[in-house]
Structure formats: structure tokens, C-alpha cells
Nucleic acid binder design. Structure first.
Length: 461
RNA sequence: CGGGGUGUGGCGCAGCCUGGUAGCGCACCUGGUUUGGGACCAGGGGGUCGGAGGUUCGAAUCCUCUCGCCCCGACCA
């Protein structure tokens, strides 16, 4: 019943790295506590649907447990983020969630950060904190381990739970206090080299979000103390976005999901082709430029899913993260940091893909590819056909969620639409008499009556 | 952190104003009838009404304090 197949995803936020086979499932055994009614606290679609689809449960304000269905999606998103980070040359590490306050005293941020930082004391009465980010930690590691310009450039990333004690968490996991984030850090000899790293992340982010089925628009962001043009936010357009944004229509048309990128080539022209076009978050909008765009102007609401930033020597100086140069001198390395809100992406994807009946997962992150509905459990023909479909698809490497529960058809349809698997195979006694099943696309709602064999080969493609 | 709201079984809610010992729908369990878009009948289990103090013969209900959660705003991946 449970068989290994080619769908492999990596778990990485545990103590050891391991590969896990994602398997098909029988709904009668699956932990999927769906809700018919909407919990009153959920205001926006993604929050509502994640609770109703049994993906998450709230623990306290802005803190959630991830149930099997939600966890699967989260891990799939994480796996795609990892693949794209690996592809651009970043290396995965894993830093702690709990950090010593002393580390943050070096950069001065222990006092600067304010009540958003969750502060803890250990049994020895030492000041600790639950990390809201990891610049200090990674810079210390770099300081300890790297001496020479010959070791540069380096790009390190990790995917870890972070905590920011938001005054007002909201929108479910979209703005929780605890959240899963990919953050990466680049180390270069100088700003010029730093820009090369920055550009790699810029392009890599376009690919990552495109692969997830999202249109994420890079928009100039406040670049802080360093100034210049080396900070961008990536925003997904969605009705329930937190801020009003505007951009050139052309930026909506980009699709990087299947374009090969040579990360060692000069990426500047590519980056320029995006940054040249107008794109602004609400606080950066410019009425004059927008008027000039005319029909090419698009305004919408946006969800920030990524942020890249070059900050030079802000941390390398206090941590003395220096390298020797080719002429025997010594310089503090030039650094950048690059974030992707992994858990937030789950919400962002749902905001972008849902209807009144439920979620509509893009296939790449769908918890299962196919939902198999047995319309008459207990009927020999139906049970036999469904077992066959279930086993054949699973063996072919297709993830199937088989609704073998002995409940009414309406409940199965409703649950399947709610959890939003891309395809439904509906098998009932009526069609099976002639060897036919229904294949329904969740996205279009289209249903076609096709032979059992055709359904199998279509899904196994 | 300012402003507002809310807390009654797993979920959604009524009861509170006008105190008399807790109710409805869904879900759950049992039996039966049903069975292609969230069935019906009968029976059943589950709640110290967020917590503490007070008023009273008596408090879900009135008073005081407190905690949780949600919404608007400011702030943020």
C-alpha cells in the first residue's frame, strides 16, 4: 500500500539531513481534520482555508502547528527553495534558533531591536534570545573560519524557524510570530563583488517564485545605511496583500521557471531589464512616473515574500570578519542577506489560487497530485477499480490521496474541492460498468468521462 | 502600543439587558432507513459558561480585577 516512488523531498530542519519518500495515502487513515464551518477568527481566504482544510491549528497568537497536509505543502515549498539556492551556488547550513545575547551585543542590536525580540534566560541566568534573524550568528562563524580573499566569495543559507514578537500577529501564518524562513548571506571582497552575489540572488528569486507558480515582482526597497540600489522586495500580487503597490505591466509577464541561467555569467543586464521598469511599494510610489506609464501601469495589493539586501560591512566590522587581500592587506568582507518567507509562501500561494469551494494548488506544491474518490465504498467493482488505480498510480510515482471513507458522495466532493488537489479521479458504479471514470481538473472545474486506462496514463505523464 | 470587539462542548452560535442552576445547529457514538454534490428517523456521550474575587438565599447573567483571542491603526519577512 505504501510504496516508495520517485517523488523525493528533503527534510532539512532536523538535526540530521535525510531523504523522505512522500507517499500516497488513504483518507480513512490520514489525519485530515477538515472543518465545515469557518472558525470565527479567520478573516482572509488563506487563513480560513488552511484551518478548514486541516493544514494548521493555532497554538497561540501567531503561532501554529502544522498538520500532515499543511506540513507536506510546507516541505514541498522548502524543497523548491533549496533546489534553487543550491543551483545558484549557495550552500546550506543550519544555525540555532536560540542565540546568546552577547552575540547581539557585538553588533549593538541587542539594545536596538526592541520588544520584537523574544528574550530568554537560561538556567545560569545568561541572556539568550530566540533568533529573529541570523546576521550575527553567521558573521561569527565566518570570522572564526575564513582568513583569506582566496576563500571568497561564499554564499550560505539556512532554513529555520524564526521568532519575532509582533505586536499584532494576523492573517494566520502570513504574519505569524513564529515563521519558517530561508535566509542567505553572501561574503565578498568588496562592493563590486558583492553586487555579483546580489545579482545571483535577484535572478534566483525570480526563478524560485516562478516555479512556485507565483508572479513575484521585484520592487526597489529602502536600502538603509548603505544607500544605493542594492535592496529589493519581491511582492506577490493578491487582493488581500498588505500594501498597495504599482508597477509596469511588462513585469507581470515574466516567467523564469524553465529558462536556464548561467550564474557565472554577467547577470547585470538581466537584472537591469527588471529594475529599469517602474515598480514601487506604497511608500515609494511616484505619481509623476505613474502618470507617464498610462495604460502600462498596474496597481494592485502585494504580499512581500522575499527581500534581498546588501549591507556592506555593517556586521563584518564589529565582528572583525576580515580577510587578507592579495597585496597583504586586510579588509572587512562585504555582506548581503537574502530572505524568503517559506511559511508565508503557503499563505501567499493560497491567496493567489483559491475559489469559493477551497484551495486550488499549483501542481508543484500540491500535497498530492491526485484525489481519488470512491463513490461507493463496499461495492466490489468500485473498491476493486479504486484499489487498482491507487496502486498503479502510486507505483508510477504519482502521489494519490484515496478517499476510501464510507461517507456520502457530497462530503467527498466537498472535502476534495476544499483541499484543492489538482486532479480528481471520480470512480462510481455507473461509469465503471463501461470501464469509465471521471477526471476532474480542480483549476478549471472541467470534468471528462474517460476510460480507466486513459486516466491512469494521463496522471502518470 | 492606542481604539474597538469577543470569550458558553471539537466548530458555528443563542441565552446575559430584566439573576432561579445551560440550550440550538453541525460534528461525534449506537441502531435502522438511505446513498453521484455536505441525507433522514430514533437513541446517546460530552460544557466547573476564560480565570479570580465580590454582591446575593441563589450568578453564564450584576460589580471589580485579570488573562486569552480577534478586528482597525502605527510597525514588520
Amino acid at each position: 500500500m505504501i510504496q516508495s516512488h520517485k517523488v523525493r523531498l528533503r527534510f532539512c530542519h532536523y538535526n540530521h539531513s535525510l531523504y523522505k519518500d512522500y507517499v500516497s495515502m488513504r483518507l480513512s487513515r490520514y489525519f485530515l481534520p477538515t472543518l465545515k464551518e469557518t472558525p470565527s477568527e479567520a478573516q482572509i481566504a488563506s487563513h480560513r482555508l488552511m484551518l478548514r482544510a486541516g493544514m494548521i491549528r493555532q497554538s497561540s497568537a501567531g503561532i501554529y502547528s502544522w498538520l500532515p497536509l499543511g506540513h507536506r505543502v510546507l516541505m514541498k515549498i522548502q524543497a523548491i527553495v533549496e533546489e534553487e539556492q543550491d543551483a545558484m551556488g549557495a550552500q546550506q547550513i543550519l544555525m540555532p534558533t536560540i542565540q546568546p545575547a552577547d552575540l547581539w551585543r557585538v553588533s549593538g542590536r541587542y539594545d536596538a531591536y526592541g520588544p520584537e525580540m523574544l528574550r530568554i534566560k537560561d538556567r545560569h541566568d545568561r541572556d539568550m534570545l530566540y533568533g529573529p534573524t541570523n546576521e550575527e550568528q553567521v558573521t561569527e562563524i565566518f570570522h572564526d573560519c575564513v582568513r583569506s580573499y582566496k576563500d571568497l566569495p561564499k554564499m550560505l543559507y539556512h532554513i529555520q524557524w524564526k521568532f519575532r514578537d509582533e505586536v499584532r500577529p494576523r492573517f494566520g501564518i502570513m504574519r505569524g510570530r513564529e515563521f519558517l524562513m530561508k535566509d542567505a548571506y553572501s561574503f565578498d571582497l568588496d562592493m563590486t563583488e558583492g553586487r555579483r552575489s546580489y545579482n545571483k540572488f535577484f535572478i534566483s528569486y525570480l526563478r524560485t517564485f516562478a516555479r512556485l507558480g507565483l508572479k513575484a515582482i521585484p520592487m526597489a526597497a529602502d536600502s538603509g545605511p548603505i544607500g544605493g540600489d542594492m535592496s529589493h522586495e519581491f511582492l506577490v500580487l493578491a487582493e488581500t496583500g498588505e500594501s498597495e503597490v504599482a508597477c509596469h505591466r511588462d513585469l507581470l509577464e515574466m516567467d523564469w521557471s524553465d529558462k536556464p541561467i548561467d550564474y557565472e555569467a554577467d547577470l547585470q543586464p538581466l537584472v537591469d531589464s527588471f529594475t529599469a521598469k517602474y515598480a514601487a511599494t506604497d511608500e515609494k510610489r511616484d505619481a509623476e512616473q505613474e502618470a507617464a506609464l498610462g495604460d502600462d501601469l498596474v496597481t494592485a495589493r502585494g504580499i512581500e515574500v522575499g527581500h534581498i539586501f546588501h549591507f556592506g560591512t555593517k556586521y563584518s566590522v564589529p565582528f572583525e570578519a576580515n580577510v587578507t587581500t592579495s597585496d597583504g592587506g586586510e579588509v572587512a568582507v562585504s555582506m548581503g542577506s537574502y530572505g524568503i518567507g517559506v511559511s508565508r509562501l503557503v499563505g501567499a500561494i493560497i491567496e493567489a489560487f483559491h475559489d469559493d469551494d477551497g484551495i486550488i494548488w499549483p501542481e508543484v506544491v500540491a500535497p498530492f497530485k491526485v484525489g481519488l474518490i470512491n463513490l461507493k465504498v463496499g461495492d466490489e467493482t468500485c473498491d476493486g477499480a479504486c484499489e487498482g488505480i491507487y496502486n498503479d498510480l502510486t507505483e508510477a510515482g504519482v502521489e494519490v490521496l484515496y478517499d476510501d471513507r464510507d461517507i456520502r458522495a457530497g462530503g467527498k466532493f466537498a472535502d476534495m474541492d476544499l483541499i484543492g488537489l489538482p486532479w480528481q479521479i471520480i470512480a462510481g458504479p455507473r461509469g465503471l460498468k463501461n470501464g469509465m471514470v471521471e477526471l476532474k481538473s480542480r483549476a478549471t472545474g472541467e470534468r471528462e468521462e474517460i476510460s480507466l486506462e486513459a486516466a491512469l496514463s494521463r496522471m502518470a505523464e
